[in-house]
Design a protein around this nucleic acid. Structure first.
Lengths: 201, 201
DNA sequence: TTGACATTGGACAGCGTTGTCTGATTTATT
DNA sequence: AATAAATCAGACAACGCTGTCCAATGTCAA
Protein backbone atom coordinates (compact mmCIF):
# COMPACT_ATOMS: atom_id res chain seq x y z
CA UNK A 1 0.00 0.00 0.00
CA UNK A 2 2.30 2.75 -1.12
CA UNK A 3 1.06 6.24 -1.61
CA UNK A 4 2.03 6.49 -5.23
CA UNK A 5 -1.00 8.55 -5.99
CA UNK A 6 -0.77 11.46 -3.63
CA UNK A 7 2.87 12.34 -3.98
CA UNK A 8 5.19 10.87 -6.58
CA UNK A 9 8.89 10.42 -5.88
CA UNK A 10 10.38 12.08 -8.95
CA UNK A 11 10.06 15.65 -10.03
CA UNK A 12 6.95 14.78 -12.04
CA UNK A 13 4.41 16.55 -9.92
CA UNK A 14 2.01 16.95 -12.81
CA UNK A 15 -1.25 16.10 -11.14
CA UNK A 16 -2.61 14.10 -14.04
CA UNK A 17 -0.58 10.99 -14.72
CA UNK A 18 -1.99 8.06 -16.56
CA UNK A 19 -2.26 4.67 -14.94
CA UNK A 20 0.40 3.12 -17.17
CA UNK A 21 2.79 5.86 -16.20
CA UNK A 22 2.28 5.04 -12.54
CA UNK A 23 2.94 1.40 -13.33
CA UNK A 24 6.11 2.21 -15.21
CA UNK A 25 7.43 4.34 -12.40
CA UNK A 26 6.77 1.61 -9.88
CA UNK A 27 8.46 -0.99 -12.10
CA UNK A 28 11.45 1.22 -12.62
CA UNK A 29 11.96 1.90 -8.95
CA UNK A 30 11.63 -1.77 -8.09
CA UNK A 31 14.01 -2.71 -10.87
CA UNK A 32 16.49 -0.09 -9.75
CA UNK A 33 16.32 -1.46 -6.25
CA UNK A 34 17.16 -4.96 -7.45
CA UNK A 35 19.82 -3.90 -9.88
CA UNK A 36 21.60 -1.54 -7.50
CA UNK A 37 21.59 -4.13 -4.76
CA UNK A 38 23.55 -6.44 -7.04
CA UNK A 39 25.75 -3.75 -8.52
CA UNK A 40 26.01 -0.23 -7.15
CA UNK A 41 27.03 0.97 -10.58
CA UNK A 42 24.21 -0.62 -12.49
CA UNK A 43 23.53 1.36 -15.64
CA UNK A 44 20.30 2.97 -16.72
CA UNK A 45 20.14 0.40 -19.52
CA UNK A 46 20.35 -2.46 -17.05
CA UNK A 47 17.68 -0.94 -14.86
CA UNK A 48 15.40 -0.35 -17.83
CA UNK A 49 15.90 -3.93 -18.98
CA UNK A 50 14.90 -5.25 -15.57
CA UNK A 51 11.88 -3.00 -15.51
CA UNK A 52 10.78 -4.35 -18.87
CA UNK A 53 10.93 -0.89 -20.30
CA UNK A 54 12.96 0.97 -22.85
CA UNK A 55 15.66 3.33 -21.70
CA UNK A 56 13.89 6.41 -22.97
CA UNK A 57 10.96 5.64 -20.72
CA UNK A 58 13.18 5.81 -17.71
CA UNK A 59 14.41 9.21 -18.76
CA UNK A 60 10.81 10.23 -19.27
CA UNK A 61 10.16 9.99 -15.54
CA UNK A 62 13.63 10.54 -14.16
CA UNK A 63 15.45 13.17 -16.18
CA UNK A 64 18.78 12.18 -14.74
CA UNK A 65 20.43 9.28 -13.03
CA UNK A 66 20.70 11.29 -9.87
CA UNK A 67 16.98 11.91 -9.72
CA UNK A 68 16.33 8.19 -10.03
CA UNK A 69 18.69 7.46 -7.17
CA UNK A 70 16.90 10.05 -5.08
CA UNK A 71 13.55 8.47 -5.78
CA UNK A 72 14.86 5.02 -5.01
CA UNK A 73 16.26 6.18 -1.72
CA UNK A 74 13.05 7.88 -0.73
CA UNK A 75 11.18 4.70 -1.54
CA UNK A 76 13.59 2.58 0.49
CA UNK A 77 13.45 4.81 3.51
CA UNK A 78 9.69 4.71 3.30
CA UNK A 79 9.69 0.91 3.23
CA UNK A 80 11.90 0.67 6.27
CA UNK A 81 9.95 3.30 8.15
CA UNK A 82 6.76 1.42 7.39
CA UNK A 83 8.16 -1.86 8.69
CA UNK A 84 9.46 -0.15 11.78
CA UNK A 85 6.37 1.79 12.70
CA UNK A 86 4.25 -1.26 11.97
CA UNK A 87 5.93 -2.94 14.92
CA UNK A 88 4.70 -0.19 17.21
CA UNK A 89 7.92 1.08 18.77
CA UNK A 90 6.00 3.14 21.30
CA UNK A 91 4.21 0.21 22.88
CA UNK A 92 5.27 -1.94 25.82
CA UNK A 93 8.50 -2.21 27.74
CA UNK A 94 11.52 -0.75 25.91
CA UNK A 95 13.42 -4.01 25.81
CA UNK A 96 10.52 -5.95 24.39
CA UNK A 97 9.69 -3.14 22.03
CA UNK A 98 13.25 -3.05 20.72
CA UNK A 99 13.27 -6.77 20.13
CA UNK A 100 9.94 -6.60 18.35
CA UNK A 101 10.93 -3.67 16.19
CA UNK A 102 14.31 -5.12 15.32
CA UNK A 103 12.86 -8.45 14.25
CA UNK A 104 10.36 -6.66 12.07
CA UNK A 105 12.86 -4.28 10.55
CA UNK A 106 16.23 -5.87 10.05
CA UNK A 107 15.50 -7.97 6.97
CA UNK A 108 14.13 -4.99 5.12
CA UNK A 109 16.98 -2.87 6.32
CA UNK A 110 19.44 -5.36 4.94
CA UNK A 111 17.76 -5.31 1.54
CA UNK A 112 18.83 -1.72 1.28
CA UNK A 113 22.31 -2.23 2.63
CA UNK A 114 24.01 -1.64 -0.70
CA UNK A 115 21.79 1.32 -1.38
CA UNK A 116 22.93 2.92 1.82
CA UNK A 117 26.53 2.53 0.75
CA UNK A 118 25.74 4.24 -2.54
CA UNK A 119 24.15 7.19 -0.87
CA UNK A 120 26.82 7.46 1.75
CA UNK A 121 29.33 8.37 -0.92
CA UNK A 122 26.84 10.27 -3.04
CA UNK A 123 25.42 12.69 -0.51
CA UNK A 124 26.93 14.95 2.11
CA UNK A 125 26.52 13.68 5.63
CA UNK A 126 23.95 16.30 6.52
CA UNK A 127 21.73 15.37 3.58
CA UNK A 128 21.96 11.72 4.51
CA UNK A 129 21.01 12.47 8.04
CA UNK A 130 18.06 14.53 6.91
CA UNK A 131 16.75 11.78 4.67
CA UNK A 132 17.02 9.14 7.33
CA UNK A 133 14.79 11.19 9.53
CA UNK A 134 11.61 9.18 8.89
CA UNK A 135 13.30 6.10 10.36
CA UNK A 136 15.31 7.83 13.03
CA UNK A 137 12.31 9.62 14.43
CA UNK A 138 10.86 6.21 15.22
CA UNK A 139 13.89 4.78 16.95
CA UNK A 140 15.03 7.74 18.99
CA UNK A 141 12.06 7.87 21.36
CA UNK A 142 12.32 4.15 21.96
CA UNK A 143 15.93 4.39 23.03
CA UNK A 144 15.25 7.46 25.14
CA UNK A 145 12.36 5.75 26.84
CA UNK A 146 14.62 2.87 27.76
CA UNK A 147 17.21 5.22 29.15
CA UNK A 148 14.69 7.03 31.30
CA UNK A 149 13.47 3.75 32.70
CA UNK A 150 17.03 2.73 33.41
CA UNK A 151 16.95 -0.41 31.29
CA UNK A 152 19.26 1.04 28.63
CA UNK A 153 22.56 2.56 29.60
CA UNK A 154 22.54 6.35 29.81
CA UNK A 155 26.27 7.00 29.82
CA UNK A 156 26.38 6.93 26.03
CA UNK A 157 24.51 9.21 23.64
CA UNK A 158 21.37 8.06 21.85
CA UNK A 159 23.01 8.72 18.51
CA UNK A 160 25.70 6.24 19.36
CA UNK A 161 23.26 3.54 20.40
CA UNK A 162 21.38 4.04 17.19
CA UNK A 163 24.44 3.82 15.00
CA UNK A 164 25.56 0.76 16.88
CA UNK A 165 22.29 -1.12 16.54
CA UNK A 166 22.12 -0.30 12.86
CA UNK A 167 25.67 -1.49 12.36
CA UNK A 168 24.95 -4.76 14.09
CA UNK A 169 21.88 -5.30 11.97
CA UNK A 170 23.90 -4.82 8.84
CA UNK A 171 26.55 -7.15 10.12
CA UNK A 172 23.90 -9.76 10.70
CA UNK A 173 22.71 -9.70 7.13
CA UNK A 174 26.24 -9.67 5.83
CA UNK A 175 26.96 -12.81 7.81
CA UNK A 176 23.90 -14.50 6.43
CA UNK A 177 24.80 -13.59 2.88
CA UNK A 178 28.32 -14.87 3.22
CA UNK A 179 27.06 -18.11 4.67
CA UNK A 180 29.37 -17.97 7.65
CA UNK A 181 26.56 -18.34 10.13
CA UNK A 182 23.28 -20.23 9.99
CA UNK A 183 20.46 -18.02 8.89
CA UNK A 184 18.16 -19.35 11.59
CA UNK A 185 20.41 -18.38 14.46
CA UNK A 186 21.63 -15.04 13.28
CA UNK A 187 18.45 -13.18 14.11
CA UNK A 188 18.60 -14.37 17.69
CA UNK A 189 22.24 -13.42 17.83
CA UNK A 190 21.38 -9.97 16.60
CA UNK A 191 18.75 -9.47 19.26
CA UNK A 192 20.87 -10.89 22.02
CA UNK A 193 23.85 -8.77 21.14
CA UNK A 194 21.92 -5.56 20.68
CA UNK A 195 20.15 -5.90 24.01
CA UNK A 196 23.34 -6.86 25.74
CA UNK A 197 25.16 -3.89 24.27
CA UNK A 198 22.43 -1.55 25.43
CA UNK A 199 22.11 -2.90 28.92
CA UNK A 200 23.45 -0.70 31.73
CA UNK A 201 27.02 -1.34 32.73
CA UNK B 1 58.28 -0.99 7.60
CA UNK B 2 56.50 -2.74 4.80
CA UNK B 3 57.99 -5.76 3.18
CA UNK B 4 58.02 -4.36 -0.31
CA UNK B 5 61.35 -5.94 -0.97
CA UNK B 6 60.83 -9.60 -0.31
CA UNK B 7 57.53 -10.13 -2.04
CA UNK B 8 56.00 -7.59 -4.34
CA UNK B 9 52.26 -7.21 -4.52
CA UNK B 10 51.72 -7.28 -8.25
CA UNK B 11 52.66 -9.96 -10.69
CA UNK B 12 56.11 -8.45 -11.07
CA UNK B 13 58.13 -11.18 -9.44
CA UNK B 14 61.22 -10.28 -11.42
CA UNK B 15 63.83 -10.48 -8.75
CA UNK B 16 65.78 -7.45 -9.88
CA UNK B 17 63.80 -4.25 -9.57
CA UNK B 18 65.47 -0.92 -9.44
CA UNK B 19 65.09 1.38 -6.44
CA UNK B 20 63.03 3.95 -8.32
CA UNK B 21 60.61 1.24 -9.36
CA UNK B 22 60.11 0.27 -5.75
CA UNK B 23 59.46 3.88 -4.91
CA UNK B 24 56.92 4.24 -7.68
CA UNK B 25 55.06 1.14 -6.59
CA UNK B 26 54.88 2.38 -3.03
CA UNK B 27 53.64 5.79 -4.14
CA UNK B 28 51.03 4.25 -6.37
CA UNK B 29 49.65 1.99 -3.69
CA UNK B 30 49.49 4.82 -1.19
CA UNK B 31 47.83 7.08 -3.73
CA UNK B 32 45.34 4.39 -4.63
CA UNK B 33 44.50 3.98 -0.98
CA UNK B 34 43.76 7.67 -0.61
CA UNK B 35 41.88 8.01 -3.86
CA UNK B 36 39.73 4.92 -3.37
CA UNK B 37 38.85 5.96 0.14
CA UNK B 38 37.38 9.16 -1.24
CA UNK B 39 35.81 7.59 -4.31
CA UNK B 40 35.47 3.86 -4.80
CA UNK B 41 35.46 4.41 -8.55
CA UNK B 42 38.55 6.57 -8.71
CA UNK B 43 40.14 6.23 -12.12
CA UNK B 44 43.64 5.12 -12.93
CA UNK B 45 44.32 8.67 -14.08
CA UNK B 46 43.29 10.06 -10.72
CA UNK B 47 45.42 7.55 -8.88
CA UNK B 48 48.41 8.28 -11.08
CA UNK B 49 47.96 12.01 -10.54
CA UNK B 50 47.96 11.54 -6.79
CA UNK B 51 51.02 9.36 -6.99
CA UNK B 52 52.84 12.05 -8.93
CA UNK B 53 53.32 9.67 -11.78
CA UNK B 54 52.15 9.30 -15.31
CA UNK B 55 49.40 6.84 -16.13
CA UNK B 56 51.66 4.60 -18.18
CA UNK B 57 53.85 4.08 -15.16
CA UNK B 58 50.97 2.66 -13.23
CA UNK B 59 50.30 0.19 -16.03
CA UNK B 60 53.97 -0.68 -16.00
CA UNK B 61 53.63 -2.25 -12.57
CA UNK B 62 49.97 -3.16 -12.53
CA UNK B 63 48.92 -4.46 -15.90
CA UNK B 64 45.28 -4.05 -15.06
CA UNK B 65 43.03 -2.18 -12.70
CA UNK B 66 42.11 -5.43 -11.02
CA UNK B 67 45.69 -6.23 -10.22
CA UNK B 68 46.14 -2.83 -8.61
CA UNK B 69 43.09 -3.37 -6.44
CA UNK B 70 44.47 -6.72 -5.40
CA UNK B 71 47.76 -5.17 -4.40
CA UNK B 72 46.06 -2.40 -2.51
CA UNK B 73 43.94 -4.83 -0.59
CA UNK B 74 46.92 -6.98 0.32
CA UNK B 75 48.69 -3.89 1.56
CA UNK B 76 45.68 -2.78 3.59
CA UNK B 77 45.20 -6.14 5.22
CA UNK B 78 48.87 -6.15 6.06
CA UNK B 79 48.63 -2.74 7.70
CA UNK B 80 45.71 -3.75 9.85
CA UNK B 81 47.29 -7.04 10.80
CA UNK B 82 50.43 -5.21 11.80
CA UNK B 83 48.54 -2.78 14.01
CA UNK B 84 46.59 -5.62 15.57
CA UNK B 85 49.46 -7.93 16.29
CA UNK B 86 51.50 -5.00 17.58
CA UNK B 87 49.01 -4.72 20.42
CA UNK B 88 49.77 -8.28 21.45
CA UNK B 89 46.36 -9.91 21.40
CA UNK B 90 47.68 -13.00 23.12
CA UNK B 91 48.82 -11.23 26.25
CA UNK B 92 46.92 -10.54 29.45
CA UNK B 93 43.29 -10.94 30.38
CA UNK B 94 40.95 -11.24 27.38
CA UNK B 95 38.94 -8.17 28.28
CA UNK B 96 41.99 -5.99 28.69
CA UNK B 97 43.55 -7.49 25.61
CA UNK B 98 40.46 -6.75 23.54
CA UNK B 99 40.38 -3.15 24.71
CA UNK B 100 44.06 -2.72 23.97
CA UNK B 101 43.80 -4.31 20.54
CA UNK B 102 40.69 -2.38 19.60
CA UNK B 103 42.18 0.95 20.57
CA UNK B 104 45.24 0.17 18.51
CA UNK B 105 43.36 -1.10 15.50
CA UNK B 106 40.12 0.71 14.93
CA UNK B 107 41.44 3.89 13.34
CA UNK B 108 43.41 1.96 10.81
CA UNK B 109 40.51 -0.34 10.21
CA UNK B 110 38.30 2.61 9.46
CA UNK B 111 40.77 3.99 6.95
CA UNK B 112 40.09 0.93 4.88
CA UNK B 113 36.38 0.94 5.37
CA UNK B 114 35.62 2.03 1.81
CA UNK B 115 38.16 -0.40 0.46
CA UNK B 116 36.37 -3.22 2.17
CA UNK B 117 33.14 -2.19 0.50
CA UNK B 118 34.85 -2.25 -2.88
CA UNK B 119 36.18 -5.72 -2.39
CA UNK B 120 32.94 -7.01 -0.97
CA UNK B 121 31.27 -6.45 -4.30
CA UNK B 122 34.35 -7.34 -6.31
CA UNK B 123 35.27 -10.71 -4.88
CA UNK B 124 33.30 -13.82 -4.04
CA UNK B 125 32.68 -14.29 -0.34
CA UNK B 126 35.13 -17.16 -0.09
CA UNK B 127 37.97 -15.13 -1.60
CA UNK B 128 37.23 -12.28 0.76
CA UNK B 129 37.30 -14.60 3.71
CA UNK B 130 40.58 -16.08 2.57
CA UNK B 131 42.21 -12.69 2.22
CA UNK B 132 41.09 -11.52 5.61
CA UNK B 133 42.80 -14.47 7.17
CA UNK B 134 45.87 -12.53 8.37
CA UNK B 135 43.67 -10.35 10.54
CA UNK B 136 41.14 -12.98 11.54
CA UNK B 137 43.80 -15.35 12.75
CA UNK B 138 44.76 -12.73 15.30
CA UNK B 139 41.30 -12.03 16.62
CA UNK B 140 39.84 -15.50 16.77
CA UNK B 141 42.12 -16.87 19.48
CA UNK B 142 41.48 -13.79 21.60
CA UNK B 143 37.73 -14.26 21.50
CA UNK B 144 38.04 -17.98 22.10
CA UNK B 145 40.28 -17.41 25.05
CA UNK B 146 37.72 -15.11 26.58
CA UNK B 147 34.98 -17.66 26.03
CA UNK B 148 36.97 -20.41 27.69
CA UNK B 149 37.59 -18.19 30.67
CA UNK B 150 33.91 -17.36 30.83
CA UNK B 151 34.37 -13.61 30.47
CA UNK B 152 32.89 -13.58 26.93
CA UNK B 153 29.54 -15.16 26.26
CA UNK B 154 29.75 -18.61 24.71
CA UNK B 155 26.20 -18.98 23.49
CA UNK B 156 27.05 -17.18 20.26
CA UNK B 157 29.59 -18.23 17.64
CA UNK B 158 33.01 -16.62 17.44
CA UNK B 159 32.33 -15.59 13.87
CA UNK B 160 29.37 -13.59 15.04
CA UNK B 161 31.30 -11.82 17.75
CA UNK B 162 33.97 -10.92 15.26
CA UNK B 163 31.54 -9.54 12.73
CA UNK B 164 29.80 -7.60 15.42
CA UNK B 165 32.93 -5.98 16.81
CA UNK B 166 34.08 -5.06 13.34
CA UNK B 167 30.70 -3.54 12.56
CA UNK B 168 30.76 -1.46 15.70
CA UNK B 169 34.25 -0.22 14.91
CA UNK B 170 33.11 0.90 11.50
CA UNK B 171 30.07 2.56 12.97
CA UNK B 172 32.33 4.44 15.33
CA UNK B 173 34.40 5.93 12.54
CA UNK B 174 31.31 6.72 10.53
CA UNK B 175 29.94 8.68 13.47
CA UNK B 176 33.15 10.58 13.82
CA UNK B 177 33.22 11.42 10.14
CA UNK B 178 29.65 12.61 10.12
CA UNK B 179 30.31 14.77 13.15
CA UNK B 180 27.33 13.47 15.05
CA UNK B 181 29.40 12.50 18.06
CA UNK B 182 32.47 14.03 19.62
CA UNK B 183 35.62 12.44 18.38
CA UNK B 184 37.06 12.25 21.87
CA UNK B 185 34.25 10.21 23.31
CA UNK B 186 33.57 7.84 20.49
CA UNK B 187 36.55 5.60 21.17
CA UNK B 188 35.41 5.05 24.72
CA UNK B 189 31.90 4.38 23.50
CA UNK B 190 33.25 1.81 21.09
CA UNK B 191 35.15 -0.01 23.79
CA UNK B 192 32.31 0.15 26.28
CA UNK B 193 29.78 -1.16 23.80
CA UNK B 194 31.96 -3.93 22.46
CA UNK B 195 32.80 -5.25 25.91
CA UNK B 196 29.21 -4.97 27.02
CA UNK B 197 28.00 -6.84 23.94
CA UNK B 198 30.50 -9.61 24.57
CA UNK B 199 29.85 -10.01 28.26
CA UNK B 200 27.98 -13.15 29.31
CA UNK B 201 24.22 -12.84 29.53
C1' DT C 1 80.98 5.04 -18.30
C1' DT C 2 78.06 2.17 -20.21
C1' DG C 3 74.01 -0.47 -20.80
C1' DA C 4 69.80 -1.81 -19.04
C1' DC C 5 65.92 -0.34 -16.72
C1' DA C 6 62.29 3.11 -15.71
C1' DT C 7 59.65 7.21 -16.52
C1' DT C 8 57.69 10.66 -19.41
C1' DG C 9 54.28 12.78 -22.53
C1' DG C 10 51.42 12.02 -25.74
C1' DA C 11 48.54 9.75 -28.99
C1' DC C 12 45.29 6.12 -30.10
C1' DA C 13 41.40 2.63 -30.50
C1' DG C 14 37.59 0.48 -28.30
C1' DC C 15 34.15 0.40 -25.21
C1' DG C 16 30.26 1.59 -22.27
C1' DT C 17 27.76 5.25 -20.36
C1' DT C 18 24.67 9.30 -20.07
C1' DG C 19 21.43 12.20 -21.99
C1' DT C 20 18.80 13.90 -26.23
C1' DC C 21 15.89 13.52 -30.03
C1' DT C 22 12.52 11.77 -33.50
C1' DG C 23 8.81 9.43 -35.66
C1' DA C 24 5.82 5.63 -35.38
C1' DT C 25 2.78 2.99 -32.37
C1' DT C 26 0.18 1.69 -28.43
C1' DT C 27 -2.69 2.68 -24.54
C1' DA C 28 -5.57 5.19 -21.17
C1' DT C 29 -9.16 8.52 -20.57
C1' DT C 30 -13.53 11.05 -21.64
C1' DA D 1 -14.38 7.39 -31.34
C1' DA D 2 -11.43 11.01 -30.52
C1' DT D 3 -7.69 13.08 -28.08
C1' DA D 4 -3.88 13.27 -25.36
C1' DA D 5 -0.46 10.76 -22.91
C1' DA D 6 2.91 7.29 -22.77
C1' DT D 7 5.85 3.86 -24.81
C1' DC D 8 8.74 1.96 -28.26
C1' DA D 9 12.71 1.43 -31.36
C1' DG D 10 16.56 3.28 -32.63
C1' DA D 11 19.91 6.60 -33.75
C1' DC D 12 23.08 10.16 -32.16
C1' DA D 13 26.82 13.08 -29.92
C1' DA D 14 29.73 13.83 -26.05
C1' DC D 15 32.28 12.10 -22.61
C1' DG D 16 35.43 9.42 -19.64
C1' DC D 17 37.73 5.31 -18.87
C1' DT D 18 40.79 1.31 -19.82
C1' DG D 19 44.56 -0.53 -21.99
C1' DT D 20 48.29 -0.25 -25.62
C1' DC D 21 51.99 1.75 -27.92
C1' DC D 22 56.06 4.61 -28.98
C1' DA D 23 59.99 7.67 -29.13
C1' DA D 24 62.62 10.56 -26.16
C1' DT D 25 64.55 11.29 -21.84
C1' DG D 26 66.07 10.33 -17.29
C1' DT D 27 68.06 7.31 -13.71
C1' DC D 28 70.10 3.40 -11.42
C1' DA D 29 73.67 -0.23 -10.90
C1' DA D 30 77.97 -2.50 -11.86
Amino acid sequence: MSNTKTKSPARASARKRRADAERSIASIIDAALEALALDPDASMAEIARRAGVVRATVYMHFPTRESLLDAVMEHAVGQVAEATSGAEPTQGEPEEALERVLRATWHKLSDFHTLLAINTSRLPASELHRRHEPVMSLFVPLIERGQEKGVFRSDLPVAWHLAMVRAIAHAASAEVRSGRIEESSVEDALIATALNALSPS
